[in-house]
Structure formats: C-alpha cells, structure tokens
Design a protein around this nucleic acid. Structure first.
Lengths: 329, 329
DNA sequence: CGCCTTATAGTCAATCTGAGCATAAGGCGA
DNA sequence: TCGCCTTATGCTCAGATTGACTATAAGGCG
C-alpha cells in the first residue's frame, strides 16, 4: 500500500464506493437517511460505486443524493476515506482481490416531509447511538454501558495498557470528567474495540458476543455505524464555528427552535439566555417581522438566517456552551 | 459518479494513488519533502499507487514514508481525497479511462539531518506560498499580488459575481480586514481561479499566462500545490487545539524555540509573554533541569513535552494569539 | 564593570462567559 | 374577567480569560 512511483509493485485497480451520510431534522430530532440492504445487517447508509462523468466528487455526490431524496442539499462535505469495511480490524485477511475504498460524505438537507418517492427511510440518529444523547433522562442505561466498558478497560490495564481506564473515563465523562460531545467517534471506537458493538463480532464472521447482544444502539451494515459516528463528531464540531446549523432549519424559525436543533445535534442542553446573546451578537439572524404563535407562552419572533454572514465573517458558528448543571431547569 | 447499489452503471475500477505531505522543521523553517518528477513541472510530493497488504491506509502510508525518509513519523493524518489532478477545472474532458483518485496524507517528522539515504529533497514551504509568510518583511511583493488579484476580482464583479471583490479582501486581509492564517487553501484556490498560478494554465494544456509567469511561488506537479495548501491550512488549525506542534520539536527545547516554530508554521508573529503563559497554564511542558546556553542573552530553561497531556486533556493545543501590531518589537 | 541581549515574573484593564433575576405577553381555567 | 401558567426576552454581575505592558534576572562581551 503506497510505494514509489515505479517500484514495480502490482498496481491493482480497486473498487471505489461513495457513501453518504444525509442528515435532516424531523420533529426536532436529527435523522439520517438509510436504505435497506440485502445482507444480514439490514440498515445501511446509501452507498454505491463511483461512476465517472462528473467534474468533482462533490458535485457527483450532490447530484446522486438529490436524485435519491428529491430535495436540494444545503451543504456537502467530504468526511473521510476508509480503506476497507473494517478499517481497524487487527487480523484481517483480505487479499488484494476484494479491496474496497469508500469515500464518505456528510450532507445536510432541509426538513423532509415524507414523500412517497423517497428511496430509503429516515431514522433517528440516537437510535444508533443512545449514549450520545445527554439532554436528560436515561442515565440508567448509560451506567450499564459504563460498567461494561470499565470491566473491559480494567482487563486491558492488567494486560499492559496502563492508560486504558483513564481513557475510558475521559472519553465518556465518567467520575467527574467533562463530557465532550465532539468525541462521538472516539467513544464508538472504544465500544467496538471492547467488543460491545455487534459489528465487531460480525466482521470476524462470528455470532455477536453475549456482551454485544445486550448493548443499546442499532447496528448497521459493515462499517456504516462508524461512518455515522464520524459524521456526528464532525457536525458537532462544525456548528461551533460555521453557520451550518441553518442548513437544517426552515426558512423562518424562532430562537428556541434554533436552540433545540443545536441541542439535538450536540446532545447537550444549552443555557438559553447565553445562547441567544451569542446568536444576536454574531449577527447570524434577522427579524422577519412575523411572530410564531401557539408556542404555549408568549409568542416568539420568527427570524431568518442572514446569508450574508457567509461572506462577511470568517468563522460565524454557533458556539455551544453547555450548562454546568447539565439538565433543563 | 455515485449511484445506487445495483442500477447497472459501469462499475469502473479506478487507479488509487497515495500522496504524502511530510513536514519537518529545518533551521527554524518548515520544510516539505519533495521528489523529482519526470514531467515538465519538476517538483512533486511523494506519491505512488496504493498497494494491498496493510490493515489500514494510515499504517500503510506510515510504513511507506518511513522507508522513504528513514525516520519515525510523529503524526499521520488523512487530509483529503481528490478525484482528479485538477478537481475544480471546469471544462475537463477526461473520460472514464484514466480516472484517478488520490488520497492525501499529512505527516509530521522530527527535524531531519541531511542523510545521504534520503530519497527526495526538503524544501521550504514558503517557497511555494510566499504570501503566506506574514512574519515581517516583503509587503512589496504582497501588494503586487493583491493588485493583480483585485483586477481579476473587479472583472468578475462586472461579469456578475457581486461578492468577489469582498471575498478577496477578506481572504487576503486587505484594506483593514483581519488576516486569518488558516485560510491558506482558500487563498491558493482564489489565485488559481484568477489564473495567477501557473498550474491553472498547464492543466488546460496551455503555456502559463503572462500573468502567472510573473507570480511568486514555485509551482508543483499536477495539483500538488493545492494538496500542500490543504496541509498548511489543516496544520495551522490543528496546532491550536491539539499538541501536534511537539511532533516537530526535538526532545528538549526552549520556550522561544517553541514559539518560533509556532510562528513559522502559522506565518504570524506571536506575543511572547502571552504565548508563555498559555503553554505554562496548559501544562504542556515540564522542565528538564538543563539550560540552553549561547542564546545571546540570559540562558533559557530547556523543557520537554509532557506526553501525558495526550491522555489527560481533551484539547490541549497551543492557542496562537497574533499580536495586534503584527510585527516583532 | 557597564552594556547589550534574551529570559522570566508580575500587573492591569478590557472583554468574554457562565449564571442568575426580572419583566413581557400570550393562552387558559376558575 | 382575573389570576396563573408558560414561554420569550431583557438586564445584571462576578469570575475567568486575554491582550498588552513594565520590571527584574542572568548570561556574554567590549
């Protein structure tokens, strides 16, 4: 893999797939577009072989996904290129025959109504990563997960990996460590290594271990759950310094809508007043003049995103500040 | 390009290249490893066809580059996957025959002594991007570049792209706009679009335009200068939130050494006292006990990187704060 | 021995941030 | 109709962070 230009190695042409993580909000929850797959693990991200004929990968992917979803994509970004469907599987024995490269993209779409023409199905992303939702509730399941994970980490420590317990503690914000919502990928990789993700066993051609069977979170085809975790990490980081959040919002929305979206993506409750101050200070939105009624209290202003900021400001994101107390008042 | 799993399109196997951007410090300046290339544009990044046999792309690349440079790499990160050697060339006519995917990696190496066994040559990175060095001097050449660029932008504006002049102003920090060192890629892409990079003409099979001929900065083979710009942007961003800077330092160094390295990479002068405060506060280094003599003044403490922070802190980077005045005292 | 150079410590004001209280304005039930 | 519940929005305040400066330390060198 990789060599000087002319050292005579077999220059194998490989199969290249595109994989798309398409995110949209429905009912205030982030959803991801999935397709049915023939294999045992039914749920998959949309993927397909790379085909020639587009000037760039990005425009090609955009066209393809827009055909699939029948709606315009607001934002497209390359995520990562994976060399195989189980990139960090230690004892892989795949020969040069079936080597596959898969180039993963993140795409954001406006909220979809259910259209009959859609090929695929939107699924709540926390269905795949329940432990990533820290907005409230469910600490019991989390405790169970941590227990399993620490048991594995202690075994690793005894086997020579001194830092393993500490790494788990920090990644999962246990025992007083701060929770960093951006480390979603790292957390998934830890669970995978600990054999607590059913895919880990499936990749080896085994039945899922007893441990993995009881674990929360839907598995996905091949390494698609890892790709989704990559997307979540990237998106959670990105909304803090780029105005991508607005690609998921309707044309007009209230500041609370915006905050709920930010919270749903990052999985963390935010401080209301400070969130508003930040959005206002950065000049990210402007009044539409209309008001939203039926919110159950005082009507809220409907605002719209100021597209101009994309030009005028270098880094106008929605900086997220989690409340210290970590729950709604 | 991209399609559903089984929609019967030609599933063309494509050629996949790895390209490496290997960075090291020499004489206080960042250098990049280059190789001679047969083509007209002599200077290229090391690249070669992907070869099977490694568990992950990353370890394969690491092995390959370590063979090339005869030294351990401190850090390896995937940069981007390019679909063709001129990804944003509008009127490309490449058929499906010679489609090439190129996966680019960023690698950091400790300072190299010149070894006879090295295949390749280290070159100062600002030789390729003189306008990216804002540590002092040379505003004359920069003014010349800006003049050319604004001339192009005004033509674009008259042709219908209303924001073009403003985008140039913001990207290049002209007319009072703040300079953002992380936008190196964006700046290169603008120069390319403006036909002020010789590669832009070469890609179209033409002689470099008169405009491009007079422009500063060495051109590179194919899209390698764009890949290098991607690496520079990524590295300049990364040193602010991850301790990658230390991968480029020797085992023991002074705080001034560290600051000079940070300045050389980011291309911006930093405020000395605040830089020290930041490094100290974050606990990134510890005393070795030894002192550095021969610095021309009071001897400085020699410190070393605290490897532990990689485990203990989630985001321990060297936050760079440019001085407002923008030059050394 | 005084002066030049660089290293390092400490101070201070402006700003930012996290968190609180207070008030506004709709709906709804008694 | 009036008070109460709910959400929206405005304002304050203390502590932390940041940008910039001053002062002192400790080598080398004429």
């Amino acid at each position: 893999m990789g060599g000087g230009g002319d050292q005579g190695g077999r220059e194998s042409r490989v199969r290249v797939d595109l994989t798309a993580v398409v995110i949209a909000m429905r009912d205030g929850e982030p959803h991801v577009l999935t397709v049915a797959n023939d294999g045992a693990s039914g749920v998959a991200l949309p993927f397909g072989p790379l085909q020639a004929g587009h000037p760039t990968l990005q425009t090609g992917l955009r066209r393809w996904v827009e055909d699939l979803t029948h709606r315009k994509l607001g934002y497209v970004e390359q995520l990562y290129t994976f060399a195989d469907h189980a990139p960090f599987q230690p004892n892989a024995d795949h020969g040069a025959d079936h080597q596959t490269i898969s180039i993963a993209y993140l795409a954001l779409a406006a909220s979809p109504e259910d259209s009959a023409t859609l090929q695929g199905r939107w699924r709540r992303w926390y269905g795949f990563f329940p432990w990533e939702d820290r907005r409230g509730g469910g600490p019991a399941a989390r405790a169970h997960l941590l227990e399993r994970l620490f048991a594995w980490a202690e075994a690793q420590r005894d086997a020579g990996d001194a830092d393993c317990v500490e790494r788990v503690r920090l990644a999962f914000g246990a025992d007083g460590a701060a929770w960093d919502e951006e480390r979603a990928l790292e957390r998934y990789e830890m669970l995978y290594e600990a054999d607590l993700a059913p895919e880990a066993a499936l990749d080896l051609g085994l039945e899922p271990s007893a441990a993995a069977n009881g674990m929360p979170g839907l598995p996905m085809f091949a390494d698609h759950r890892r790709i989704l975790a990559t997307a979540i990490s990237r998106l959670r980081a990105k909304i803090k310094y780029r105005p991508v959040l607005f690609e998921l919002m309707p044309a007009a929305f209230t500041l609370t809508n915006l905050q709920r979206t930010a919270e749903a993506l990052s999985g963390v409750p935010l401080h209301k007043q400070n969130f508003r101050r930040l959005v206002a200070q950065q000049g990210l939105v402007e009044d539409t003049g209309a008001m939203a009624t039926g919110t159950g209290g005082r009507p809220a202003k409907l605002v719209r995103f100021r597209r101009e900021v994309t030009v005028e400001r270098p880094a106008p994101g929605v900086r997220l500040r989690a409340t210290r107390r970590g729950s709604y008042p």
